[in-house]
Amino acid sequence: MLITLSEIKQISLNGVWKQNSSLVQILGMCPLLAITTTLVNGVMLSFATLLVMAFSNFLVACLRNLIPYEIRIPVFILVAAFVVTVIDLGMNAYMHDLYNVLGIFIPLIITNCLVLGRIEAFAAKNGPLGAGLDGAMMGVGMIWTLGLLGGIREFIGAGTVLGGIELVIPGTSALQVLPADYPGFLVAILPPGAFICLGCLVAWRNWVVTRAAQRAQMPPPAPIAAGGCH
Rank of each mutant, 00 (worst) to 15 (best):
V83Y: 04
A81I: 04
I156Y: 01
A121H: 11
A81P: 08
N20L: 06
Y182K: 09
Q19M: 11
C113V: 06
R205H: 05
W144C: 02
L13H: 09
I3C: 01
G164L: 02
V75N: 02
L2N: 11
A203R: 00
A213N: 13
Q176T: 09
C200L: 09
C113A: 10
G117R: 14
P179N: 11
T210E: 14
Y69H: 10
E154T: 09
Y99N: 07
A158D: 12
I73A: 08
I224Q: 14
L198R: 03
L190D: 12
N65T: 15
G150D: 03
R72A: 12
M138A: 11
L5Y: 15
L148R: 03
I11L: 08
R215K: 13
A216T: 05
A222F: 10
G103D: 11
M218V: 10
P31C: 07
L13F: 14
L50F: 03
L51C: 07
A213C: 12
S173M: 10
G103H: 04
C197K: 00
T36S: 15
M218R: 12
A225E: 15
I169F: 11
L146Q: 12
T160C: 09
I26R: 06
T49M: 14
I67K: 03
G90S: 11
N92P: 01
G184F: 04
C200S: 09
S46D: 02
L175Q: 13
A188P: 03
V24C: 03
S6A: 07
I8S: 01
T210Y: 14
H230T: 08
T49I: 13
L190P: 03
F122V: 11
L146N: 08
W204T: 10
A216N: 12
A226M: 15
F195M: 05
Q10L: 11
T36F: 00
E70L: 10
K125H: 12
G184Q: 05
D134W: 01
A216V: 07
L102K: 01
